[in-house]
Amino acid sequence: MSMSASLSVSQSLKAWWHKLGSPRWFYEISGPWQRLFGVLALVLLVTGTVWGLAFAPQDYQQGNSFRIMYVHVPTAIVSQSVYMLMGAAGLVLLVWRMKLADMVLSAAVPFGMSMTACALFTGAVWGKPTWGAWWVWDARTTSMLVLLFLYFGLYALRQAIPREETAGRACAVLALVGTVNIPIIKYSVNWWLTLHQPASFTLTGAPSMPPSMWVPLLINVLGIYCLFAANLIGRLKLTILERERNTQWVRALVREVSA
């Protein structure tokens, strides 16, 4: 009995996995998810940002400049997660040759890259009142800068290879190698910091932030993940439309929308 049950579970899992490989199936089921994540992102981000900007208590050391944390930390965290996701998508593409993984690999780059650049910029703006300089070679800043270069490498490689399928698989290899490297880069840069810099630069140094300070941060972090999910689904759907533009179902969809 349990044998057959586990068999049917594995069969339905397998069927799901195969369906996930079908762009059309993904296009048709993902609409509600995109809306759900979009609404969640809007609610969370507005709540967290207003709370952090106007209601969270002032930091006793940094004054009001610490409020930059509520936009800086979520963008920094999400940009690293996006790269990790692309590494995972690269693995899936190379092992199972799933079309959707290839699309994730190309659709996630603009979001990840813009978030990395944004985190670097807000970090610099935060650094000016806190450290007295726009740019400090601090461990986290430097890791983020290297991450931006990694994103740019993925972008440039895709631009350089004319054939889409080849470009996708080349990017998959690069994203995988990059993902393996990220922890080593972070460790080495941290180690380098202890060599070159006095260890007084701890941005979120307050060991125990009161809940009124960290709850809005948590809300914004969750919000930006929801935003990424909605944005990724939107870009995936667009990529699907572009790559399948000559198929019956896409042409029917276009006629339906115009009618």
Binding site: Q58, N64, S65, V71, H72
Partner: peptide, 12 residues
């Protein structure tokens, strides 16, 4: 923002 307005608003 207690003198930090430029930085905070620029970042946001």
């Amino acid at each position: 923002m207690g003198g930090h307005g430029l930085y905070v608003w620029l970042a946001y």
